[in-house]
């Protein structure tokens, strides 16, 4: 297992958000985390990336403990994520946004940067190269010099993915990547998610409400409800699991129909 959670519990002021969650993602796999609104999906992401500190349990990444590590350390170990609502550095160019993702992979210290040492110059060139490669990979290379805020929404999502890839992760967490995308863009996203795994050997874990997309891309699906994992397995198995159907149909305004 690349990522492994064991008996993870997270509470906020007496509210149990995650309740003894056991969960895992294998290296190079495509997995999804689904569940009704408020089930704790994003909280689980935040716990993995170090923003929340679960009171109990164990989270291992690549055989190392990551629970209670600082977020930037977790990223350095190889976990990247994107957000439900796009969070780009709006006043910076697309290129600079992606380059910011490379920061954790650079070695030249602050003094090198101030003094412009040759090593630091070479590193700047390397960073630019990788950033271009990431932008080409998601198909936004032609917008490199535009301000992030001036791109269409669909492209902003791609910038976010390129920036996450620039951190050179082994696992990428995508939080509702299809939200607000049209049909064509969704099809392209499915293609992109597959390529991230196939061509870069990066494991993908996504939270998504679009069941069509989830069923198409995921090899494993985990279902979270009221902070508990209530089902896991292949798309087919999960689809027919009575607990899952109940969790969704018990809701009034859920967009999902299985």
């Amino acid at each position: 297992m690349l990522l492994e959670l064991e008996q993870v519990s997270l509470r906020f002021a007496g509210n149990t958000v995650l309740d003894k969650v056991d969960f895992g993602v294998e290296a190079g796999s495509l997995a999804s985390l689904i569940g009704p609104n408020g089930a704790g999906k994003t909280s689980l992401f935040n716990s993995i990336t170090g923003f929340y500190r679960p009171q109990e349990g164990r989270i291992d990444f690549n055989g190392e403990r990551i629970l209670r590590r600082k977020p930037h350390k977790v990223t350095q170990m190889g976990v990247a994520r994107t957000f439900q609502n796009v969070r780009l550095f709006r006043e910076m160019s697309v290129m600079e946004n992606v380059m910011a993702g490379m920061h954790c992979r650079t070695k030249a210290g602050a003094f090198g940067a101030v003094l412009r040492t040759p090593g630091q110059r070479a590193e700047e060139r390397y960073i630019a190269e990788v950033a271009h490669e990431c932008m080409r990979f998601v198909g936004i290379d032609q917008y490199a010099d535009r301000l992030a805020t001036n791109l269409a929404y669909g492209y902003q999502r791609l910038v976010e993915i390129a920036r996450a890839l620039a951190t050179q992760p082994r696992l990428i967490l995508l939080d509702e990547p299809a939200a607000g995308l049209n049909g064509t863009e969704k099809a392209a996203l499915i293609e992109l998610i597959r390529r991230i795994r196939d061509e870069r050997d990066v494991a993908v874990l996504l939270i998504e409400h679009d069941m069509g997309l989830v069923m198409q891309v995921s090899e494993h699906i985990h279902v979270l409800d009221y902070g508990r994992i209530i089902a896991k397995g292949t798309a087919e198995a999960v689809k027919n699991n009575p607990k899952v159907i109940e969790a969704y149909l018990g809701q009034e305004d859920e967009e999902m129909v299985l």
Partner: peptide
């Protein structure tokens, strides 16, 4: 030059926009 062209300069601007995002990108804020 430092702020617009170097890694730490970019990080400085990024930190002033969104600290949490920087942490997620592995930047030591």
């Amino acid at each position: 030059f430092f702020v617009s062209r170097t890694m730490y300069g970019r990080a400085m601007r990024a930190v002033s926009i969104d600290k949490d995002m920087c942490r997620l990108l592995g930047i030591n804020v």
